[in-house]
């Protein structure tokens, strides 16, 4: 009942190649043994990448990725929403921010913003209610594929206009159809250009509507 995960055969074949090359070169110049092993290593890389994307490497916890955030301009004294786009590798899912069981680990963003830039609302998408082979009777609330979390940034009036980098981490816990992987964190960062709020217009006393006779 040893596992027969897709791609394992490739890796196994490459391991056998190592052994065969060692056997073939052992009786000759030992220096060629290293060259042979290098060839086998390259063959392993080529074979592995031909059949497996990095996200499908058997037995390895999948990693979420975040798309680069386009330039964001935030006006002082106002909240600006910033969309952060994440991607779950094909074949995996993560719990939504509101999983249906207290024991499941929600996907959650934690931000640490510069002084006087206040964290506004973090808006999570609704999870998709899905059943899985390991949970046929119970729907789970999950994210898969691409999903977007919107973060509100609110620079106070005291912030000097300029560019600021926002840092945070996304914590998530991924599963596939048969196994779950330990919780991981993805560092998150994006740049915000803080600009002054528009000047407010005050009534000019010189233009008082009062008519003085």
């Amino acid at each position: 009942m040893i596992q027969n995960v897709a791609g394992m055969e490739t890796i196994l074949a490459a391991r056998i190649n190592f052994a065969m090359i060692d056997q073939q070169t052992e009786s000759h110049d030992p220096r060629t043994r290293g060259v042979g092993r290098m060839c086998a290593a390259l063959a392993l890389i080529l074979l592995s990448t031909a059949n497996l994307s990095p996200s499908q490497t058997p037995g390895k916890a999948p990693s979420l990725t975040m798309a680069a955030v386009p330039a964001v301009t935030a006006q002082r004294t106002k909240q600006t929403m910033v969309d952060l786009n994440f991607r779950v590798p094909h074949g995996y899912h993560v719990n939504s921010n509101s999983p249906k069981s207290e024991f499941l680990i929600p996907t959650a963003l934690k931000m640490d913003l510069p002084t006087d830039i206040i964290l506004g609302k973090i808006s999570y998408p609704a999870g998709a209610d899905m059943t899985f082979p390991f949970s046929p009777d119970e729907k789970l609330s999950v994210y898969s594929g691409d999903f977007t979390i919107a973060v509100g940034v609110h620079p106070l009036r005291s912030v000097v206009p300029g560019k600021y980098v926002m840092h945070g981490v996304l914590r998530y816990q991924a599963c596939d159809n048969a196994a779950c992987y330990p919780p991981k964190t993805l560092p998150v960062s994006f740049e915000v250009k803080v600009v002054k709020e528009p000047a407010t217009h005050h009534a000019n006393p010189a233009q008082s509507p009062h008519v003085h006779g």
């Binding site: 024991f103 499941l104 680990i105 390991f134 816990q173 599963c175 196994a179 779950c180 330990p182």
Partner: peptide
């Protein structure tokens, strides 16, 4: 683990 659906 408690967070593992298949384990349940």
């Amino acid at each position: 683990a408690t967070w593992c659906g298949p384990c349940k």
